[in-house]
């Protein structure tokens, strides 16, 4: 797979950060996952253009890059909504009833895990154990862990969070 000539430093600071990650690993193919992490952090998600540039720079086939990007739960190929509600579906959280929260979310927002509302306000994701099992059931609102709440408390909290957010 022929590599293209080095990118000149671009005005795109996001791409520069991605390039720095690749550079840290000497542009070796094994840097792919670390690079995808940086790309998602900076761009918010992994779009085809970015994936193509990474493939080119690391000398990895585009199909392989796509294969890696789609293998792992963490990587998103679609942009996320303004707010993200992550419901932990670990064992302790399951035993403490988080599937009810998922069912409620489907009813309230019409979302299945992995989907975003049409107005882009809210994304719903499933997380397989954040490791806070003693706080079960765990819900994560925009990265903040909220645990130990009953179903009524959780749903009220989510309503409040979405109502307050963006005002």
């Amino acid at each position: 797979m022929p590599r293209s000539l080095p990118d000149h430093r671009t005005d795109d600071r996001r791409w520069n950060a991605v390039d720095r990650t690749m550079q840290r690993h000497d542009y070796r193919p094994e840097a792919l996952i670390e690079t995808l992490h940086t790309a998602q952090e900076r761009y918010g998600f992994l779009d085809p253009q970015t994936l193509g540039r990474i493939a080119d720079r690391l000398g990895v086939a585009p199909s392989k890059v796509l294969g890696v990007a789609t293998f792992y739960n963490h990587f998103r190929l679609q942009p996320a909504g303004e707010h993200t509600l992550a419901v932990c579906t670990g064992t302790a959280c399951h035993v403490k009833g988080n599937d009810r929260i998922l069912a409620w979310a489907r009813e309230q927002f019409g979302l299945s895990p992995g989907e975003t509302t049409p107005d882009n306000r809210l994304s719903l994701v499933e997380v397989r154990c954040v490791g806070a099992c003693a706080l079960a059931p765990v819900i994560v609102t925009d990265g903040e862990i909220r645990g130990k709440k009953s179903f009524a408390e959780s749903t009220a909290m989510i309503g409040e969070w979405l109502g307050d957010a963006g005002r």
Partner: peptide
């Protein structure tokens, strides 16, 4: 692409 029973053979960037 993908994983498990959702696996699909893929060309380039899909």
């Amino acid at each position: 692409r993908n994983r498990g029973s959702r696996s699909l053979i893929v060309v380039d960037l899909d």
